[in-house]
Each structure stands twice: as C-alpha cells, then as structure tokens.
C-alpha cells in the first residue's frame, strides 16, 4: 500500500509543475546540473577533502586521516610556495597585459582595408593552434645560449655579448618563459578582437573623422570603449588560462633553475606527482581554485553592472 500512497503526491507535484510550465525547464537544466555535479562538483569535493587529510597513494581510495589545516599551514609556510605565488603573479600579469595589448593593436591593424589583411590575420591562428609541446621545444632552441637565433641576433646588433643563458640564468628564465607564453596567446586575441572590431559600425568612425578625430584619438575614444565587454571577457579568460598554465613552463624549464620559473601549477604538480604530498598538492590547487572563483565573481559583478 505504501508505494501507491507515496506516488500520489509525486504525480500531483508533476501535474503542478506541468501547469506552471516548469517541468520543461527542469528537464532542460537536468543535463547541465548532472554534468556540473558529476564532472566538476565531485572532483572539487574530493580535492577539498584531500587537502584536509594526510593521504598517501595507498589511501587514495579509502581516504587518509583528517589533519585539519596542517596541509595549508605547511604550504603557506613553505618559502618555495611564496616564491611560486610571486612568480605566478608576474607570469600572469605580464602575459595578460601583453597578450591583450598586442592582440588589440594587431587586431586594429588587420581591421584596416589593405590587400591580404584577412589572410594574414588568419595565419596568426596557426601559431595558436600549434601544439604547446612543439612551441616550447622551438623556444628552447631559440633561447639556446650557443646556437640560439635570439643570441645570434642580439650579438649581431651588439645589444648583448650574444651568450646570454636565457633559460639557465635565474635573472632571465621567468621573463624568457613569459615571452614564449605571450607569443602563444597573442594570435587568439588577434582573432577574438578582430571579430569584435567588425561589430563596431563604420559610421561611428566616419562621424568622428568628420569631426576631426585622428586615428589614435579614434582608437582611444571609440574603439577601446566599445570593446569593453570583449576586453573584460578576454581578460578574465586569459587570467584563468594563464593561472593554470603548466605545459609551456614544464617543457621549457620544469620550474627551474632554482625555482625561478616555478608557478603554483608546477609547484602543485610536484607536490602531487614528485613528492607524493597529496594533501599539500590539493591545498595548492584549492588556493588556485579560490583565486579563479574570485576572478570569475569580479567578472560577473562587473558585467552585471554593464548590463544594468
């Protein structure tokens, strides 16, 4: 008897939902919710749990003993973590500023009408589409102290002695890796901003020209303000992608020399897969996650403000 009596309220609820047209909405939402819970929510939950336990490879399934904030304390008091955090900030800020800046300038350039502009701008995507492994390996050779093109060029122009150890000198390594990362990211922003620029009505520029505004004035006063939404989206996405960047650094320097190119991604990876400190590794990844959530929240707040 119980099943019949318990089914009745459910049917009533379904009827009520149908009446209000909400059932369709719920059904449409269900796949997304299931995906978010299963593919994102669960791993995040496991990672948060790890960060509060002393987990070894043998207890990955069963779960290690609870250690409270010990992993976070260990990570925050590790000078290497602080150095990695500093490197992450430098790497991210420099990458984003130059990727967005150069991307915008190049997009503005290719938005002009001249023969081959469209084809040339499309070619940029090849650099973005190239596998990071290949790009990283090529940059390693470009930066080579003895045989690298960069040293050859700088030496020929008498700008340096032509023997700078770009990736082996703690002074230059982070800058060298950042430049490689900027080079990889610029083509994406060129394409991204070019699409946005096409949406700015030509009449606006024409009207400004008639009012006597020069090219720079039009770029600063019309183009940039009208590109605020794509700049915001590009910036947020860029920050999130760059914070997570791992492959380029790993291929070029593996975080060395002496931790000078270690970022939170490589630091966290080493905690997990080199040192087997699963709790500490999870704590680092959670710190990164919180930072990314904050960035995303700021974006949502700003974009809501723009909409209203």
């Amino acid at each position: 008897m119980t099943p019949i009596t318990s089914a009745a309220p459910i049917r009533a609820n379904v009827r009520r939902l149908r009446r209000h047209g909400r059932l369709t909405g719920i059904l449409f939402l269900a796949p997304v919710v299931l995906f978010l819970v299963g593919a994102l929510g669960y791993p995040i939950f496991v990672n948060v749990r790890f960060s509060f336990t002393s987990t070894t490879a043998g207890t990955l399934l069963s779960g290690g003993p609870w250690v409270g904030l010990a992993n976070y304390t260990a990570v925050f008091t590790d000078p290497k973590f602080l150095e990695s955090a500093g490197n992450t900030v430098v790497f991210t800020v420099m990458s984003i500023v130059f990727q967005l800046g150069l991307g915008l300038l190049l997009a503005a350039f290719y938005n002009q009408r001249f023969p081959g502009a469209t084809r040339m701008s499309s070619l940029y995507l090849l650099a973005w589409a190239a596998p990071v492994v290949a790009t990283g390996a090529v940059f390693r050779w470009l930066y080579d102290r003895q045989y690298g093109v960069i040293n050859w060029l700088l030496g020929m122009l008498h700008l340096t002695d032509g023997h700078t150890a770009w990736l082996s000198d703690t002074q230059f390594a982070l800058g060298a890796v950042t430049v490689a990362n900027i080079w990889t990211g610029v083509p994406f922003y060129v394409t991204f901003f070019l699409a946005a620029l096409k949406n700015i009505p030509e009449q606006v520029h024409e009207a400004a020209s008639m009012d006597g505004a020069g090219a720079i004035r039009r770029f600063v006063s019309i183009t940039v303000p009208m590109l605020r939404p794509p700049l915001l989206i590009g910036g947020v996405f860029g920050i999130i992608f760059t914070l997570k960047a791992f492959d380029m650094i790993w291929i070029m320097t593996r975080g060395g020399p002496l931790g000078s190119t270690e970022t939170l991604s490589t630091y966290g990876y080493n905690q997990f897969f080199t040192f087997f400190q699963f709790g500490a590794g999870a704590a680092v990844m959670n710190v990164l996650l919180v930072v990314m959530i904050i960035v995303a929240a700021i974006y949502l707040r700003v974009s809501r403000g723009e909409e209203s």
């Binding site: 102290r145 150890a165 082996s168 000198d169 390594a173 060395g256």
Partner: peptide, 21 residues
Amino acid sequence: IPQDVLNWTWQDAFTAFQNKS
C-alpha cells in the same frame, strides 16, 4: 662549467659532448 648546466638534462649535456662543445 657552462651556465647551461642549470637547465640541461643529462641528455642535453651528452648532446653537447657529441657536438664537441
């Protein structure tokens, strides 16, 4: 010792030896 050793693997060093560097 060249500065490169700070970013060389064992194989990188042997390649330099092969190249007579």
